[in-house]
Amino acid sequence: MRSAQAISILAPVLLGIVVLALWQGACRLWHIPPYLMPSPSDIAAALWHDGPALLHALLSTLEVTFAALAAAVIGGVLVAFLLVQSPLIERCLMPYVVIMQVTPIVAIAPLIIILVKTTPVALTLCAALIAIFPVISNTLQGLRSVDPDLAAYFRMYKASRLQTLFRLRVPSALPMFMAGLRIATGLSLVGAVVAEFVAGTGGNSAGLAYEILQSGFQMDIPRMFAALFLITVAGLALYGATAGLQRAVLRHRA
């Protein structure tokens, strides 16, 4: 058991090291210029050199990410609660929820950026729109996944609407909600980066997407990779955090 666990950690790490070594070797051997394909050591140097600036940009992107996630969770949960209130409300609203889901938000992002003057708000809105759908659909499905026998039990004891909501529906919805939250967290980051690309905002609140664009214009490819590396690390950290949260919240369930 322990050794199997060790292998499942060691094997991908080893693979990563081998790939990095091959990459480095190939760049050296064929003298590939860094503006075509930087070697891992070039990227590491760029990361070291531009680290403070890039970290600043990362923080800016993460701000948008978290604001968007909060907005998507609050908005998504509210919409889901609204939808389960009555079949009529659901029939009225559901088509629009679906329309919102099938519309590529990237396509309407420029519109949002024009309409909303404050850039951080516009970025957050775009990212939140990208992240909200899994929250809505998962929470909705969760609120509906109540065990019918348990629901009958609550009715038998004449539970009030509020008791049924907080003692039955909300806890029943939690596993689906947590899965939705996990997806939404990833999408918030994607959304933040995409919105920054579209907005192309520089200045003090420039995000990582802007740094990537700028590095591209300046042919500073190692810096581009370094920025990419930071986004990936941020994504992994977010993924790990939500996975941990999910485990903690659902720890007693089978």
Partner: peptide, 28 residues
């Protein structure tokens, strides 16, 4: 009073045994 036991235990997986047993009293 009536009490009903279903084919499945139909317990609340998020609550411990004590709170599951207390449920009808809580609702009352």
């Amino acid at each position: 009073r009536l009490a009903f036991v279903f084919q499945d235990a139909t317990l609340m997986p998020w609550a411990n045994v004590g709170r599951n047993v207390r449920l009808p009293l809580d609702l009352m």
